[in-house]
Design a protein around this nucleic acid. Sequence first.
RNA 1: GCCCCCGUAGCCCAACCGGCAGAGGCAGACGACUUAAAAUCGUCACAGUGAGGGUUCAAAUCCCUCCGGGGGCACCA
Length: 855
Amino acid sequence: MKPAQRGISVADQKVKDAQEFDFAKIQEKWQTIWEELEPFSTSNPEDKRPHKYVLDMFPYPSGDLHMGHAEAYAFGDIVARYWRLQGFNVLHPIGWDSFGLPAENAAIERGVDPRKWTYDNIAQQKRSMKLYATSFDWDRVLHTSDPEYYKWNQWLFLKMYERGLAYRKDSWVNWCPKDQTVLANEQVEDGLCERCGTVAIKKKLTQWYFKITDYADRLLDDLNQLEGSWPAKVLTMQRNWIGRSNGADVYFRVEGQSEPITVFTTRPDTLFGATFMVVAPDSDLAAELVAGADSQTQEAFARYLTEVQKKTEIERQDAGREKTGVFLGRYAINPVNGEKVPIWSADYVLADYGHGAIMAVPAHDQRDLDFARKFGLPIRVVVDTTATVTGAITVVDESASVDFESINPETTGIALVGEGRMLNSGPLDGLSKQNAISKMIEILEKGGNGKAARAYRLRDWLISRQRYWGTPIPIIHGSNGELIPVPEDQLPIVLPESEGLDLTPRGTSPLGGAEAWVNVTNPIDGSPAKRDPDTMDTFVDSSWYFLRYLDPNDDTKAFDPAEVEKWAPVDQYVGGVEHAILHLLYARFITKALFDMGYLTFTEPFSALLNQGMVLSGGSKMSKRKGGVSFSDEVRTHGVDAIRLTLAFAGPPEDAINWEDVSPAASLKFLARAWRLSDDVTSKPGALWKDGDTSLRRHTHRFLADVPGLAESLKFNVVIARIMDLVNVTRKAIDTGPGGADPAVREAVEVVTMALSMFAPYTAEDMWQKLGYEPTVALASWRKADPTLLIEESVVCVVQVDGKLRERIEVSPLAGADALEKTALELPGVIRAVGDRKIARVIVKAPRLVNVVTE
RNA sequence: GCCCCCGUAGCCCAACCGGCAGAGGCAGACGACUUAAAAUCGUCACAGUGAGGGUUCAAAUCCCUCCGGGGGCACCA
């Protein structure tokens, strides 16, 4: 609190303000009333209103809410309140994504029980949300860390396991040395653990995976359905992440071995230019091949493999780095020309993409060229990129004869990756790239040497975590290593108490140390067995939570088909762009899997998505720590409504907000100004609007007609601008127009109040009451615009000569084109501007514009 | 390196299917009220749309090139 500049006058002022618009008092008053009324409950089965499902991404309960939450929840709440005004029964639930590392780390650092830490934070956030006037249905709250919730996580796991979508494999995984747990591919950003920023390393471990790659095509293709309803950016990111490439698989026989090697290539047209082969050093294939080589080669390979495995993901991904590799002493046979090509192993080939092996075409691939030049391997050009080819075999342009030596990859070091005419390629000679690809696939398929194929960047979703605070995996390991799913009727497998457990990250799950918990009997034969000690990635929890809200208290099933039919999919989803891939991809995947299992009738969970922009202060994310303003401070000084209004008014919702650019004080001032209008309405409810001032009514009804379109296209900033405009016009009508007793003034103020209730619920409730209505304005009905009031009395018609503005005339909105043209041509300004030039034509867009075009 | 989005008053932002560049706000100037100030009410000013070219009767809007900002992908065959 700032010290009073001039003691007495400031104190006086405070008293005066308090009598006028005291937001704190209004907040307190309405919170109590809302608690009693529960206006946002959706549990009445008799409710006949149509449905909407508006969902905010649920928060992780670390500490109190911050400005980022405030922004997202403001937008979700505006949408929910908008649809309620439009007569919909709106499901707008909230819950907590309450499993996860921070709770566990707090436990380790401060000795707090993760449960207590989590649920205390939830209680705090819940209080803040209620103060923040979010219109959530508080009867549907869920916490993913409740056994009542994670029981169904375990159920989901079992369903995935039944369908072969959950499986274990021994593989190289991303490992965070700090958190001492594995990470999914999606959780490694630029080689760093996305949670703590530690450099991730690779470990070979047996882990549980969800087979998301089975859904790669559908996850990619169904994005087309979301075009226009999801941010283009998110669609692009998901497409990139899935990374589908079309090409071919080619089978290479290996000398002295019966099993052929399969390689994936996007350029089967260049097969005649393949002069060596490369396999990933950390692949099984490399190990098999080198096993058949001499001991010197084996030693060299072993040394190389060790070296490669020491590298972090960051080092490996450095594209500029020098190529390394070893010859494996083995040869493969190129199936189209019978040539013997040496097999090398190098770490620029990845074990888990395609088949972990490539055909190297150094003349036409930069990576292969770099490798060939370093190790002296042959380079053969098979595409003449100086020639242009169109159609099947027609060479169109050979005149652009560039001197071949000037572009020879062997000397320039630049691979010829462009289009061109095939050469040195037998049956492909003369063809264009596209035709050569098709032809080669045909040849391969005919000869049984390959087939058209696709490869994906997407990898299966690693879901095991070696941590305590998560959902136990419902699998029992028998003494012979057999995997036994826990019978459904034994769910949930409840997490043991953390007391007495060592939660310190040690690379294996702390649950392994809970003797009484982990040791069980084999449900099949009663022999001693152990529970799987790992817990699930918390993204499993959030991959289906939107279904659990439909009936969060049902302990007989995860979700009810009838409720799903009624509410789902989500009509509007709101959340941060940081989940563009992770959560949104997983939720889409699980939705499709549940669809295939027959539990759902739709394949996309979120029909529309809004990513709110970030709230920045001083160029970085707003946080109290950095000495900036905090959410709770801002709420204290300006009130909830002013903060909500400020966030929504700042600009388009997806744009970032610089706190320095906005003014919560101005928002508060505006709210007081709007609020004062309701004091100046002196007519009673039920006043006959049609007797009111027509000019003001035109404004009001134009507003009623325009706002729904603006709100539905999420242009909240424009909606607020329009409310401000209507407030200004109404103020003028009261002070210098027809006066506060005019029914049109009451009509306008009622409309302002309704519209304002989306953004500033407290202020709007208070206005509604002052207007003589019972609570709550949140359940009021949006009025339909009267079409007769939407027609202006007169409009301004612009008259141009050759595109230049010459005259403006007032005309009837119904004026016809011919009449307008005639009038326009007689205007002095037009006659002057035309002069003695001839009129070529006259363009009329009645009733707004006439353009006289001269020759 | 490749791909996507965005550049409009001093600032944040509007502008429908191409049709008068301005809805709203911040900051500013002036006026009314006041002994004065705050609050309130009112009035006003400010850009030709990042630059250049093209299409069109007409371009902030469509196309091309460049500049500036933001984001995504990048040893994925």
